[in-house]
Design a protein around this nucleic acid. Sequence first.
DNA 1: TTGCGTGCAAAGGTTTTGCATGGCA
DNA 2: TGCCATGCAAAACCTTTGCACGCAA
Lengths: 136, 136
Amino acid sequence: MAGKGTYRTRAQEAVLNYLKATPGKHHTAAEIKAQLSAKDQPVGTATIYRQLERFVAEGSIRKYTLGPGDSACYAFVGDCQCNAHFHCKCEVCGRLIHLNCDELSEIRSHLLEHYGFSWNEGKTVFYGVCEDCRKK
Amino acid sequence: MAGKGTYRTRAQEAVLNYLKATPGKHHTAAEIKAQLSAKDQPVGTATIYRQLERFVAEGSIRKYTLGPGDSACYAFVGDCQCNAHFHCKCEVCGRLIHLNCDELSEIRSHLLEHYGFSWNEGKTVFYGVCEDCRKK
DNA sequence: TTGCGTGCAAAGGTTTTGCATGGCA
DNA sequence: TGCCATGCAAAACCTTTGCACGCAA
C-alpha cells in the first residue's frame, strides 16, 4: 500500500515541467492541456486537474482563482522565499507582483490578536489593478 | 422607450428586501432563491441573477467571488462604503469568516500609495486557520 | 398600448467523478 | 503482481442566454 502520490509518471512530469519553465507565470488548465498537446505530450483534462491539485497540496505550485465562470490559474513556485512576501495579481493584465512590506506584516498579528485567525500569507493573493493598467 | 431599470416589480423588491434584511451578511444566489420560495415569493433563477447584476451595477449590493466552482456571494451595502468587507477562509474546516475592520482598510490606501495597486477587496480572500481549528 | 421584466428551458463553460485500462515499482 | 495513475465520457456545478408571455406605467 504505497499510498497516493507514490508513482512518478510521464504525465506528471510533463505538467510540472511545463509550469517550471516559466516560474511565477500563470497558466490555466486549458492552456496547459493545449500546450502539452502541441508538444506531443498530450495529457487528459482530468489528469491535469488531478496533478494540479496534488502539486498545490504539495506546495510546488500555487492556485489563483479569479471568479466563478472564469478558469483558475496555476503558477510554479520556486524555492524562492514566496512564503515570506505578498502577492498582488492584476485582474487586467494578469501580472503577478511580489511585495516585501513590513507594514503588511502587521496585518498578520492584527488578525491573530483580534480574531484568532492565523493567516497563511503564502496562499493569499490580493486581487486588483496594477499601476500600468490603471493609467489607461 | 423607458430604458432598462425603469420598472419596479414584485420580484425586484423581493430580492432587494431579502438582502436588506441582513446588511453585511452574504448570501448565494441559490440561497436567495430557496429562501424566497419558502416565503411564497418564488423568483426564477435567471431573474435573480439579472436583478443581482443590476443591483451590483447600481452599487446597492456587493458581489464576492470565492473561486471557480464555488458560487458567488452577494451582500447588501449600507450607505457607508468606507466600511470594507473582508473574508477569511479557514483551510481546515472550510469556514468563511467575514469581518468589518477599519484597520484592514488601511491596507488599501497603503497599496495604492506605495505601489500604485488598486486593491479589489471583494475578490480577495485571506487564507489561514481559524480560531477553533487552531486550538486543536 | 408599449416594451421592460419574468420564467422556463437550454446552452455555455469549468471542474469533478466513475470506471475500465495502462503503467510504475 | 499489486496498485496507482490515466483517459475517456458523463455528470455536476454555477451562470448566462433565447424566447414567448405577463405586467408596470
